[in-house]
């Protein structure tokens, strides 16, 4: 590997890591702050991708589709919380797993009934469809760079929301002591609903952004779910900052794993997880 391709691989790792962060951030919020193990998180990613497909075929513009899709996903998340997840807070993890696993099956079947089982493509917006030449025979699609920029902006935005706003303060307080926050006059139900809807919207946004490069296909949420849980566990449950660091680590492990030890490529990410958990059983940044 020469130096140029080494640099390009670093770019690949960063870009993959940032997209992983976008998916995992919603999961870590819901898991860490609300204490819900949400196996349906991958389904929200899939729903986002299918929303991008449906809305961009309807409007002819992916960016418009995303602008429309985010409030739809947020509203859908709030509705789900009101109808289903609200009943889970006081129940144990097994019941959460049962409900959210059931949701995976329902969403997959609904997708099959409404859109079918074919693979669909989503066009990259005209504005970002160019590529930048990186070496004599390799170029990099601008759209991938745009995704990375959006992810960085969202990471900064989430950090600001959690650490610097009143809402973030209430969310953090609510995750420590629900009753205390409630008795201080905060509408904790509304707060939890917001957090959950935010988690759903983040997953859906990740699906919408990834749709043009990943295509839209049955079962696409499953793979994402597993790797997202890896990121959340490595980063420390509930920590947005941890999810970012962990996602980047996973991006690097996966990319350089495939280049440096191709026979063990599938293993690199899980080796990383094992090492991190031996070193810090609660993840790199424990919730605090």
């Amino acid at each position: 590997m020469d130096f140029t391709s080494f640099l390009i691989q670093i770019l690949n790792a960063l870009q993959y890591g940032l997209l992983l962060f976008l998916v995992a951030s919603g999961l870590t919020l819901v898991f860490g702050i609300m204490g819900i193990i949400n196996l349906a998180h991958g389904s929200f990613y899939m729903i986002g991708a299918y929303l991008a497909f449906a809305l961009s075929s309807l409007t002819g513009n992916l960016m418009l589709a995303i602008v429309l899709g985010i409030p739809l996903a947020f509203g859908f998340g709030a509705l789900l919380e009101r109808l289903l997840f609200v009943h889970l807070y006081k129940r144990d993890h097994l019941q959460q797993v049962l409900l959210t696993y059931g949701l995976i099956l329902i969403f997959e079947e609904l997708r099959s009934l409404t859109v079918g089982d074919d693979v669909h493509g989503v066009a990259i917006p005209e504005l970002f469809s160019a590529s930048i030449a990186l070496s004599e025979n390799l170029s990099y699609p601008v759209y991938r760079l745009v995704i990375s920029v959006v992810c960085i902006a969202l990471a900064a935005g989430l950090w600001w929301l959690m650490q610097r706003t009143r809402l973030g303060m209430m969310i953090r307080a609510g995750s420590f002591n629900r009753e205390m926050v409630q008795s201080l006059g905060v509408n904790i139900d509304m707060l939890y609903r917001t957090v959950f809807a935010l988690g759903v919207a983040l997953a859906a946004l990740a699906g919408m952004l990834a749709a043009p490069i990943s295509s839209v296909y049955p079962g696409m949420g499953g793979n994402v779910l597993i790797i997202s849980f890896v990121v959340v566990v490595i980063g420390g449950i509930g920590s947005v900052w941890g999810a970012l660091v962990a996602a980047l680590l996973v991006g690097f492990a996966d990319t350089f794993g495939t280049v440096l030890m191709p026979d063990l490529a599938g293993l690199a990410v899980y080796l990383l997880m094992a090492v991190v958990l031996l070193w810090r059983p609660e993840g790199i940044f424990r919730k605090g």
Partner: peptide, 18 residues
């Protein structure tokens, strides 16, 4: 080779170009 059903092809494309 990449593990099934991974679809993160970018590192492989870089390797092929190399």
């Amino acid at each position: 080779y990449l593990p099934f059903p991974n679809v993160e092809f970018q590192p492989f494309l870089t390797e092929i170009a190399n």
